[in-house]
Design a protein around this nucleic acid. Structure first.
Lengths: 93, 93
DNA sequence: TAAATTCATCGTAAAATTACGATTAAAGAT
DNA sequence: ATCTTTAATCGTAATTTTACGATGAATTTA
């Protein structure tokens, strides 16, 4: 729970997740181009998302293709939504 | 967005939100009793949640009664859920 | 084989986070 | 008026986070 939220609690990492969700092409370099951060910093953020289990990277020649780990991400979404639903005053049945 | 997630990205603060959501009595001291942290540390976490706008505290005599800021919390929930829905591969219509 | 490309890792610095005890301020009780 | 209770704030230490440039490893290209 906190692990997932922590992984998402940074603007750069939110943008990475959005970018991976919206684009099929997901090479590391593409993400670097999108973010106003250095290559090494982006690589660090990708590593944190990977450590949280939210994304996975696959080596493809000289490049690395990143994508959302759909199964894990679905678990994270369910976990977070469960928390949100349990704490909101307006109950949706 | 990141502001909300950051505020929630700590086990203690998640517990505080859960506790505030489930109990009507919400004095600061009660929260201190529930968490395995010192009074000053809990006070700091409460401050962060308040800075993020998620909770509000009202002085009641010598005690302070905390509760979730329902309007702000609903906005946060909607924002987070919007993000989650937009990034999940399984779309729910 | 040599050069270039891509990206992870290393080393490091600055800033933020987390935690605690001590102190302080405000209100209530004696 | 003094003491007690409650909770915020202060000061501080340890850790973590964030960011960068430099370096290194792996693969592709020339």
């Amino acid at each position: 729970m906190a692990k997932y939220l922590k992984a998402l609690a940074h603007p750069a990492r939110i943008l990475i997740m959005k970018h991976l969700a919206s684009s099929n092409i997901c090479f590391c370099g593409d993400i670097v181009d999108v973010l106003p951060l250095s290559q090494s910093t982006v690589s660090q953020h990708l590593k944190e998302l990977k450590n949280a289990g939210l994304i996975k990277g696959e080596i493809e020649g000289v490049k690395v293709c990143y994508c959302i780990d759909d199964i894990q991400w679905q678990i994270a979404i369910t976990t977070i939504q469960g928390f949100l639903n349990n704490t909101q005053s307006i109950k949706h049945y």
